[in-house]
């Protein structure tokens, strides 16, 4: 049985991990299909009479201070949150893997340069950088938020990748490939990537939750994705003033946010346990 199949079997036996995976899958479906079924999240059908209305048949999760449908906004915000979370995690993984491979395979001088650069970058307080950029660039599109979060989040991954590469570089099969005249990129693709896949998948899946929380924090401060577009963070900001009189406005995105992050962490934990048997309890 291949190691991947064994890992899949271990994952399937882990009830928490399966629950996480099912929720993630459901969220992805909601994010893809939901916006097609719900009304326009920016529409303000009756700004005069529909402010802060509690849940009803017409508006299942009620309406917000601008008479917008909370369910529709929550569902549409899922697209932003999941999109930014998954996209930034994948991009960061790619960047980290690229730099880590380059450092591990190149000569000692390049390696030193890259890794010292990564060390310095890790000393940079990420939130300060993001706050400064988005305070200047108000109303940045979601894609920019995604790219900037990824650009400031790949450093740890590059370290992990480099460590794995270094440990494999001197191994027999890489030496054999070298002897047969294979060049760096080929070696990386054919011999190193399979070994890197497991740690990369685990770190990326655990990263998604953190990125979603980071994006929500930025939105809560009124930064990041441009306001009329719904995000869970800015929905919580809209609803916090009426938290006691109209709790549904902030609770719906709050619960969605926590549920999403929990699901990604459950699935990430499960992946880690399944792919790295030593860590399994």
């Amino acid at each position: 049985m291949s190691p991947w199949r064994r890992a899949a079997r271990r994952f399937a036996r882990n009830r928490g991990a399966m629950a996480g995976a099912v929720i993630v899958a459901a969220l992805v479906v909601v994010a893809l299909v939901g916006p097609l079924l719900t009304p326009d999240p920016l529409a303000q059908p009756d700004p005069v009479r529909l402010q802060d209305r509690p849940p009803s048949a017409a508006h299942w999760l009620g309406t917000d201070p601008f008479s917008r449908d909370v369910l529709s906004r929550t569902v549409n915000a899922a697209r932003v949150s999941l999109g930014v979370g998954l996209g930034a995690a994948l991009l960061a993984m790619t960047l980290g893997a690229g730099v880590g491979l380059a450092a591990g395979l190149a000569g000692p001088r390049t390696d030193q340069l890259l890794m010292r650069g990564v060390d310095v970058a890790m000393a940079m307080p990420r939130i300060f950088f993001l706050l400064a950029v988005f305070a200047v660039w108000r109303g940045a599109p979601a894609a920019a938020v995604l790219v900037l979060i990824a650009a400031t989040g790949w450093f740890q991954t590059s370290r992990i990748v480099r460590a794995v590469v270094l440990s494999l570089r001197e191994s027999d099969f890489v030496a054999a490939a070298r002897a047969l005249g294979e060049r760096g990129p080929g070696i990386a693709r054919r011999h190193l990537l399979p070994h890197l896949a497991a740690p990369l998948i685990v770190s990326a899946s655990l990263d998604v939750g953190n990125i979603i929380l980071l994006e929500a924090g930025l939105s809560y401060l009124g930064l990041g994705v441009r306001p009329p577009a719904p995000t869970w963070g800015n929905m919580i900001m809209d609803g916090k003033d009426v938290l006691l009189s109209a709790p549904w406005i902030a609770l719906a995105p709050g619960i969605a946010l926590v549920l999403t992050v929990v699901a990604f962490n459950l699935a990430g934990d499960g992946l880690r346990d399944a792919l790295d048997p030593r860590a399994a309890a």
């Binding site: 924090g217 963070g233 938290l243 929990v262």
Partner: peptide, 14 residues
């Protein structure tokens, strides 16, 4: 711990 770990800090504070 999983749930707490997944809660945004501003939400918990509020």
């Amino acid at each position: 711990t999983l749930v707490l770990y997944s809660v945004p800090v501003f939400w918990l504070g509020l």
